[in-house]
Design a protein around this nucleic acid. Sequence first.
DNA 1: ATAATCCCTCTAGAAGCTATAGGTTCAGGA
DNA 2: TCCTGAACCTATAGCTTCTAGAGGGATTAT
Lengths: 136, 136
Amino acid sequence: MFSIGELSKRTGVKIPTIRYYEQMGLIDAPERSEGNQRRYSKDGMKRLSFIRHSRELGFSIEDIKGLLELSQHPEKPCNNAHNIATRHLGDVRARIAKLRGLERELKRISGCDADTIADCAVIETLADHSLCEADH
Amino acid sequence: MFSIGELSKRTGVKIPTIRYYEQMGLIDAPERSEGNQRRYSKDGMKRLSFIRHSRELGFSIEDIKGLLELSQHPEKPCNNAHNIATRHLGDVRARIAKLRGLERELKRISGCDADTIADCAVIETLADHSLCEADH
DNA sequence: ATAATCCCTCTAGAAGCTATAGGTTCAGGA
DNA sequence: TCCTGAACCTATAGCTTCTAGAGGGATTAT
């Protein structure tokens, strides 16, 4: 049994975040001490680690709810887990593609070597859509 | 002079967003009709286009404030504009790098061909940090 | 017993919008 | 001129994932 502070240290999830996850229904409300303080079990810690790891991989709270639910049923088929992961992979790839476009454009405009705003490619580009290379 | 609806159509910025920008101090409060409705000038439209374009490139509201301020002073040096753009480019690159890491990991785990949760790499990975390849 | 540290709940804020409610104004036709 | 329907107004709340603060109680170590 450990306190929320202990749990926080061991999992690397900040205290208010743990309480937030409880509120969002990602983790069960744990037992309480006589003085009403949260007391977590090892299982609680495992669950929180799962959540933390999932967040690090960028899964949304909703997705994590699904994944946690699945993880409770080892005998079930895992298509759903694959679906969630694959969809998320798609999202990540889309974001990468978008950012690559931005990167290209930003690289171009920030390479400007003008001295004054009047000739600056950064400002010029932002002010005039037609100067833009990429069609975003 | 056009109404907010016209402005919205011409710039592609949604009406509530225009009002939000006004509130955030990105655009000046425009003149009003006798009945208190907003009436924009061509200058107002140019400014909003600048903002829209900047947002498309991912600049924050604060950055855009700076860029707009600079764009008003064509005679001034443009180091600041370059600084803002270069910093933002750095941000974008950092995000790309992070997402690439996620992509690699997600690709690995969603390639799992297990049938049940018990053997599923997705769930397994999330549950056990030590199985993780990348050191995120 | 007391001080230091921890924990509690509740609320608000951050970013950048979007949506809704309840009401007013405008533009065009009869 | 009146009417209708579309467009507009303000104010407020919601989205997502936390994070920070206020004001007060619990625990732990000495």
